[in-house]
């Protein structure tokens, strides 16, 4: 998914735009309006998680 990498320097808008592009590709432009709320909340969650600094050896899933 181009642009949606784990990068703490990305803004929530960067993440949202990447998710919207992915949604357009997966579900079509006509679905975007129905998905808007979920896309926004998910973008915010992804951004927040990406701000957490975890060293490679720290905290296995």
């Amino acid at each position: 998914m181009a642009g949606l990498r784990c990068d703490p320097s990305q803004t929530t808008d960067d993440v949202l735009q990447a998710l919207e592009r992915a949604a357009d590709a997966a579900w079509g432009a006509s679905a975007l309006s129905d998905l808007r709320g979920s896309l926004k909340a998910t973008a915010r969650a992804i951004w927040l998680i990406s701000q957490e600094s975890l060293a490679p050896g720290e905290t296995e899933p």
């Binding site: 949606l4 990498r5 784990c6 998910t42 998680i49 990406s50 975890l54 296995e60 899933p61």
Partner: peptide
């Protein structure tokens, strides 16, 4: 539908944060 778009790193990072 949006859940299918969440990248694998974000899910795994969420599980690491969950454990922490």
């Amino acid at each position: 539908m949006v859940g299918q778009l969440v990248p694998s790193w974000a899910y795994l990072q969420a599980q690491r944060v969950r454990r922490r």
